[in-house]
Design a protein around this nucleic acid. Sequence first.
DNA 1: AATAATAATAGTAATTATTCCTAAAAGTCA
DNA 2: TGACTTTTAGGAATAATTACTATTATTATT
Lengths: 135, 135
Amino acid sequence: MNASNHTYRPEPLRMTNQRKGILEEVQKARQHLTADEVYELVRKKQPRISLSTVYRNLEKMADAGILARLELSGNQRRYDWNTDMHHHARCVRCGAVRDVPVDAGVELDLGSQAINGFAVSGFRLEFKGICEKCR
Amino acid sequence: MNASNHTYRPEPLRMTNQRKGILEEVQKARQHLTADEVYELVRKKQPRISLSTVYRNLEKMADAGILARLELSGNQRRYDWNTDMHHHARCVRCGAVRDVPVDAGVELDLGSQAINGFAVSGFRLEFKGICEKCR
DNA sequence: AATAATAATAGTAATTATTCCTAAAAGTCA
DNA sequence: TGACTTTTAGGAATAATTACTATTATTATT
Ligand SMILES: [Mn+2]
Ligand SMILES: [Mn+2]
Ligand SMILES: [Zn+2]
Ligand SMILES: [Zn+2]
């Protein structure tokens, strides 16, 4: 029931050189990179790539689920190679972002799916603190 | 123990007309306003106020704890009249932001204060879902 | 293979949110 | 009053992101 009645055109995603280069850097960096950082990395191998291509493709691949948009408060947008559900911790001193596994001292009861009339479909948890380097 | 050793100069905050107008609007709106929205509201009563004054004073008053900075993912910054600890839920359709009381189905164990070498001092929890209007 | 249709690109301009700068105005206080 | 400090308005500057456009590359169709 309630199936969509018009056929999906699956939006072909051509795997261009630029796209491949971008994805590669994001995946091998194993960090949470900004568009600008990705640009600087890809540039080394593809000096003619443009910044807007990087922006566009990070967004496209995030939409496609190939990588994850990392939404942190009040910052430059970052992208995550890790598309699995996990949380993040940010150092208030140096701004470093660390992964936090879902079970690390965190228990979140989403059983009551309706908060204040909201149909809750997900949540985002962001820790703040001070990393070991900054102590 | 561990008290700061230099005396605090308590940073005098003059309660100017502009400041009063800004605070008033934030508090009576009972919404999570952006700087721009505050500007438009205050303008009605103080047509000569400048946008940068609004920005500057929202920041100052947030620093002073008179109002709260509301940090949501990837958005324009918003300010909260409510400085008590609480969470927020955002509607993915219309963007509306609702308050979520700290005890609403949420149990977060911060007993283990060290996550991954991080000295955790706080966290931010943001729900996403669909509000009643958008269903 | 040639042609047509579609998608992606580089480079740049435009937009948006925010912060910075500066000279003038207003508030504080001895 | 006069010195000092804070705040202001208005505009310029910055930073991140998005939009535009002519060109190039890829895929589909004859
Ligand atoms: Mn991550
Ligand atoms: Mn709130
Ligand atoms: Zn740090
Ligand atoms: Zn809604």
